[in-house]
Simulated scan of single mutants.
Amino acid sequence: MQYLVAYIATAVVFLGIDYVWLAHVSRGFYAERLGHLLMEKPNMAAAAGFYAIYVVGIVIFAVAPALRTGSLSTALIYGGLFGFFAYATYDMTNFATLKDWPPSVVMVDVLWGTVLTGVSACLGTYLTRLAIS
């Protein structure tokens, strides 16, 4: 039950923060640099699949260890590292294989993935501890 609560809490935090980032904060940044590659409407099924799988990774690699140790800093650090490696893999692969993949997108996206995942793991851990105590 603890891991289901952790999954839901982490998913709500991750989706909420990422929605604000994608829909409001960085919309112009990505459109300016990747507009020629973007679809008119995102493939929501693929996006849902990413979010569902990615949050499992956050719980396994950051939230669960933090719940075991009782340390929010564990969640923040492990979450940040998980985000860094996952987003760097995506962006560096695109940079290596796609024409016109901007270095600025690599830097911003990897930084965003690191911060977003670390914060989501930390808040997901905090909310899980609140809910199960």
Rank of each mutant, 00 (worst) to 15 (best):
P102K: 08
G35Y: 13
G80H: 04
G49R: 05
L81F: 15
I53T: 14
A86L: 10
K41S: 13
S71K: 03
P102T: 07
T10I: 06
C122V: 07
M92H: 11
L67R: 01
V115C: 04
T74I: 08
G80R: 02
F29G: 06
M107G: 13
G70P: 06
E32C: 08
A6D: 01
A48R: 08
P42G: 13
Y54N: 00
T97L: 13
Y7P: 05
A88S: 11
V119M: 05
V119T: 06
L81E: 02
A31K: 15
V56S: 01
G57K: 01
T93W: 12
T69I: 04
G79A: 02
G35E: 06
G124K: 03
I60Y: 12
A46C: 06
W101I: 12
W112S: 00
Y90L: 10
F61P: 00
A11K: 03
Y19D: 06
L127V: 08
H36D: 13
G28E: 12
S26G: 15
S73I: 14
M1H: 14
Y7D: 03
K99W: 12
V108E: 09
D18Q: 08
T93I: 10
P102G: 04
M44C: 04
V5T: 09
L116E: 05
P103T: 14
V25C: 11
V108Y: 11
F14C: 02
M39T: 12
R68L: 09
G113N: 07
V106E: 01
Y126I: 01
T125H: 00
T93P: 07
I53A: 13
T97H: 08
L76Q: 00
L37S: 12
F14Y: 15
H36C: 07
W112F: 11
D109N: 10
V108I: 10
S26F: 15
W112V: 05
Q2W: 10
T89C: 11
S104M: 12
G28I: 12
A45I: 15
A45F: 14
W101G: 03
D109M: 07
T69S: 14
Y3E: 06
T114N: 05
H24E: 11
G118V: 07
L72K: 03
A75P: 00
L38I: 10
T93M: 13
I17E: 05
G113Y: 10
S133K: 14
C122S: 11
T89N: 08
H36W: 14
M1R: 10
T117R: 01
L127R: 01
D100V: 07
D100I: 09
V119N: 04
P102W: 13
V108M: 13
T89R: 09
V55M: 04
G70Q: 02
A9S: 13
N94Y: 14
R33C: 04
I8S: 08
V106M: 07
Y7V: 04
P42I: 15
T74L: 04
F85E: 01
F50E: 05
T69E: 05
T114Q: 03
G83H: 02
F85P: 01
F29I: 10
S71T: 03
L81P: 02
L123D: 01
A45N: 11
Y51T: 03
